[in-house]
Every structure is written in structure tokens, then in C-alpha cells.
Amino acid sequence: MAQPQITADTKMGDIMDALPGARRALFARYHLGGCSSCAFSNDETLAELCLRAENLPVDEVIAHLLDSHQHDLAMLVEPVDAKTRLDSSAPPRLIDIRTREEFEAVAVPGSEFFTQELQQQLFAGDPATVVFLIDHTGRNALDMVAWFRGHGLKETYAITGGIDAWSRDVDKSLPRYRVEME
């Protein structure tokens, strides 16, 4: 995967699209983007955000974002590769972290809906268990992977692009959908 091109003039929405873990990386190091007091808009440029955030050095922030992205890539699995692993003799567990309504409307066959009980079972189980997480578009799964790994499940991965990419690249019979937010 090619390294995304980010400059001072790149809009934050474009950065969020190019680097799925960018919000987590910005919040962890600079306390940006995690709450209403440090939020940014999709139309704000990286330079504008850095200026507003006590004049952070833009080049340093770009380097941090790109380093974090390289780290995140190791926690991702492409849908086609995930399908191959799921069809193997020792398949990973496929955990769906979307809402119950989304899961009940459309789900990857064999996936398990993420509940509190399943979480407790996973965290108390074998730390070598391989787990694939799937969400709608891949935006939330990467953060959940970091959380799972932080709880000892070091072999947890996010399916790139979520169920939307799965329905495009693996199983075209699964309907694609959009979530409307009010």
C-alpha cells in the first residue's frame, strides 16, 4: 500500500479517510480530535489545526501520523485475505462490532455479534486466539483492535473497509448500505 501524501494544506476529512487511525494518533499524542474542546472539522486544514493547537510543528504532526499509519497497517487484513484465512482448517474468530440492527440486517456468514458476554469470554480465553473484527466501513474496527490488543489479544486484526468492502470484494450477495445519522 502506497504511503498517503499529506501536506499542511490537506483537509482533516481527507486525512481521516486516508489514515483510518489518524484520530486516535492525534488524540494520543496531541489531545486533538477526541472531544468537543479539541475537535476539528473535516474542512479544516492540518496547518490550521496545528496553528490553533498551540502552533504545533506541522512536519512533526505529519511524521507522527505517517508513523502511526505504518503501525496500523500491521493490524489490518484485506477482505480477500481474511476470507482465505476464515476458510482454512484453523479459522480465526470473526467478530462483528456493528450495531445489533446492522448485524441482523446483513452479516458475514459465521460472524459473531459482539456482546458484553462475548467480550468477557474472549478476554478470559486463550491470548493466542486469532480474531478478525469487522465493522461497517473500517473506521471503527482499527480502534477496537488496539483495545483488544491492549487487553492481551495480540492476534487481533481489523478487516480493511469493513463489511462494505467485504460485500464488494468477497461476497457480492451481501447488500451494501449506508447508515443515516440524524
Rank of each mutant, 00 (worst) to 15 (best):
M1K: 02
M1L: 04
A2G: 00
P4Q: 04
P4T: 02
I6R: 02
A8H: 03
D9E: 13
M16E: 12
D17Q: 10
D17E: 06
R24Y: 02
A28R: 13
R29Y: 03
Y30H: 11
H31A: 12
H31P: 04
L32R: 14
G34F: 01
S36T: 13
S36I: 03
S36C: 06
S37T: 02
C38A: 06
F40I: 07
S41Q: 15
S41Y: 05
N42L: 05
N42A: 15
T45A: 06
A47R: 09
E48G: 13
L49K: 08
C50H: 09
L51Y: 14
R52N: 13
A53F: 07
E54S: 14
E54R: 15
P57G: 05
V61Q: 07
V61E: 04
I62K: 04
A63I: 02
H64V: 06
L65K: 08
D67Y: 00
D67E: 15
S68I: 01
S68W: 08
D72W: 13
A74F: 07
M75S: 10
M75Y: 02
M75D: 15
M75C: 14
L76S: 06
V77W: 12
K83F: 03
R85K: 15
R85Y: 12
L86A: 09
S88M: 11
S88C: 13
P91R: 13
P91C: 14
P92M: 08
P92F: 07
R93K: 15
I95R: 03
I97Y: 08
I97E: 03
T99R: 14
R100S: 13
E101W: 00
E101T: 13
E102L: 00
F103Q: 02
E104H: 07
V106R: 11
P109F: 00
P109H: 04
P109S: 06
P109M: 00
G110A: 10
G110V: 06
S111I: 09
E112N: 05
E112P: 01
T115M: 06
Q119S: 12
Q120S: 12
Q120I: 08
Q121I: 00
Q121R: 15
L122K: 12
L122Q: 11
F123V: 14
G125M: 10
G125R: 11
P127N: 02
V131C: 09
V131I: 15
V131S: 04
F132Q: 07
L133W: 00
D135N: 05
D135W: 03
T137V: 09
G138Y: 08
N140W: 13
A141K: 12
L142A: 05
D143Q: 08
D143H: 10
D143Y: 02
V145S: 07
V145L: 14
A146L: 05
A146K: 05
W147I: 00
F148C: 09
R149E: 05
H151I: 01
G152A: 09
L153H: 07
K154T: 12
E155M: 02
A158I: 04
I163V: 15
W166V: 04
W166H: 11
W166R: 04
W166A: 05
D169K: 14
K172P: 02
R176Q: 15
R178P: 00
E180A: 11
E180R: 06
M181D: 01
